[in-house]
């Protein structure tokens, strides 16, 4: 089993679905946490952007990409969910096909990073409804973006370290 690939897959699933990573979890009438690390990609004008959608911090209104922008839904949310699933499946296949899946997953993560870094600032009005310049984006990057970079690095390493069965 490709453990680094498996970790990359888990990271992909986490940033595809979660708003934050809970820290200091305690169990009082359900599961709660004292603190959390936000997984926002970047923030602009009090709006936090995630892989799955946006949160307006002033009104606390949540929009998923599925309802606000279909292109972003396909390029961000769907790509990351597919990446997470195929990476976890590919990490268990100790064949050349497994290695090909790991390569595909790293390519998908790279596409997501390029989409966030280049396409969103260039077409911000059409894609997310807010004007963002490229420098503005890079001064307001969040933890989610850095986790995405770590995820990409892990996916690249997992291609090299992918175990192949010897018959």
């Amino acid at each position: 089993m490709n453990k680094i690939g498996f970790c990359s897959g888990i990271l992909s699933i986490i940033i595809s679905f979660l708003q934050s990573i809970p820290l200091g979890i305690y169990f009082a009438s359900g599961i709660s946490s004292y603190a959390s690390i936000s997984l926002n990609l970047f923030s602009n004008n009090n709006v936090d952007f995630f892989i799955w959608g946006t949160i307006d911090q002033s009104t606390l209104v949540v929009h998923s990409w599925l309802e606000s922008n279909l292109i972003s839904f396909f390029m961000l949310n769907l790509f990351m969910i597919i990446t997470g699933i195929i990476t976890i499946v590919g990490s268990t296949i100790e064949k050349i096909s497994g290695k090909a899946i790991m390569s595909l997953s790293s390519l998908l993560i790279l596409i997501v990073i390029i989409y966030i870094s280049i396409f969103i600032p260039l077409n911000s009005i059409e894609l997310i409804g807010i004007s963002i310049d490229i420098m503005g984006l890079f001064t307001s990057l969040g933890n989610g973006y850095y986790i995405l970079i770590i995820n990409f690095t892990l996916a690249l390493v997992s291609i090299r370290t992918h175990p192949l069965e010897t018959d």
């Binding site: 820290l23 200091g24 004292y34 959390s36 969040g142």
Partner: peptide, 18 residues
């Protein structure tokens, strides 16, 4: 704790700060 501290039943962490 490993992630921050709890004072007066309120948790604080600087893990999320930029």
């Amino acid at each position: 704790f490993s992630w921050g501290y709890i004072s007066n039943n309120v948790g604080y962490t600087s893990l999320g700060f930029n």
